[in-house]
């Protein structure tokens, strides 16, 4: 009855040949890495002599990429687990304003304000996650609600307390020197935020590929029900990832608040979309279960290069958004193709 398959030797050969092609296709970051090289080459040719290739030019696009990349790496992990976070922009505004207000109103030293902002963002992330896993609502809706609630509350509270929408003067706050060194200094002309970006990406990659938790992230995103059946603590994984994205948003808020010596209630607005696009360009599937933190690094790098490169070429910066949309569509199409190839059954 059970007549099966071909001889083992023949079958191994078949596996090997398809394995090589597939293994390349199965690297989620492949497309983004190729894209980053292409974009770099384009601007190197178009704007190489107007400063894109110079050290300061490189430092400027890396700094833009770093702030976006910290967020994109965290969001990638969340998206691999099958969830979204639209509230990160608002968390940036709320965290930054927490730091600024605690100094402005009560004269808190910066480290204390930062500690409060970290605690607040972790709480928001926890609530986001709890709401998603308890209600079963799409995280798109839950975090869209959080986006508006937080954004409104930040503006409302700031205006009620200070009568303004911008709060500055952080350079006079206690502990500014240490904090500035940690988050906003530059090393040999390069912003320290780049080191944070790479550090966060390295840590995320390690978690994703070399820990049990990382395996759970893939499992939860690949099939919630199957992962639960196998004993993966699905809810805990999701809540922790929402907390991680909130924490990443807080880190960016700190970097920006210290860099500018103050903050604005609108800081971070619209960031959530750029971040999701960067993650998708990085090869992370919108539907979860597949992706990488390294891909998000390349996705953010593409963003940084284009945003700064457009300035160097002298093209009107409005075209940046056209590029954003185009890249998103292309990335999704490429991802869909790769996913189909990867999941294709061998008959």
């Amino acid at each position: 009855m059970a007549a099966t398959e071909t001889a083992p030797a023949q079958r191994d050969d078949r596996l090997q040949t398809s394995g090589l092609v597939r293994r390349l296709l199965n690297r989620p970051e492949l497309g983004a890495a190729a894209g980053a090289i292409a974009v770099w080459l384009y601007f190197a040719i178009r704007a190489g002599d107007s400063g894109f290739l110079s050290k300061s030019g490189t430092a400027s696009y890396l700094e833009v990429a770093a702030e976006l990349g910290i967020l994109a790496v965290a969001v990638s992990l969340l998206m691999i687990a099958g969830e979204f976070d639209l509230s990160i922009g608002s968390i940036i505004a709320a965290s930054g304003m927490t730091i600024a207000l605690t100094y402005d109103q009560w004269g808190w030293p910066l480290p204390a304000g930062i500690a409060l902002a970290v605690a607040l963002s972790l709480l928001i992330g926890f609530l986001n996650g709890l709401l998603v896993v308890r209600t079963g609502l799409p995280s798109f809706i839950v975090t869209l609600a959080t986006l508006f609630i937080l954004a409104g509350a930040t503006i409302g509270i700031t205006r009620a307390v200070t009568g303004r929408t911008q709060v500055g003067g952080l350079a006079e706050a206690g502990g500014y020197d240490v904090v500035h060194k940690l988050f906003a200094s530059s090393i040999g002309g390069f912003s320290v935020s780049i080191a944070w970006w790479l550090g966060v990406a390295a840590f995320a990659t390690w978690v994703l590929l070399r820990t049990r938790f990382g395996n759970w992230i893939f499992g939860v995103g690949g099939s919630n029900a199957a992962a639960r059946n196998l004993g993966v603590p699905v809810d805990r994984v999701k809540i922790m990832l929402f907390m991680a994205t909130a924490l990443a948003a807080c880190l960016v808020a700190v970097i920006q608040a210290v860099k500018f010596g103050g903050t604005d209630v609108l800081r971070g607005r619209g960031r959530e979309f750029e971040v999701i696009i960067a993650a998708v360009i990085g090869g992370t599937l919108l539907t979860g279960g597949f992706g990488s933190a390294i891909g998000a690094v390349f996705g953010a790098l593409i963003f940084g290069m284009v945003r700064q490169g457009i300035i160097f070429t002298g093209v009107d910066a409005d075209w940046y958004q056209v590029f954003l949309g185009t890249m998103l569509i292309l990335a999704v199409l490429v991802n869909a193709y790769i996913r189909r190839k990867a999941a294709e059954s061998r008959r």
């Binding site: 191994d12 596996l15 597939r22 293994r23 199965n26 990867a342 999941a343 294709e344 059954s345 061998r346």
Partner: peptide
């Protein structure tokens, strides 16, 4: 041979 290939294959 290659246990790192996706189960989908």
């Amino acid at each position: 041979r290659d246990t790192s290939q996706p189960v989908g294959t």
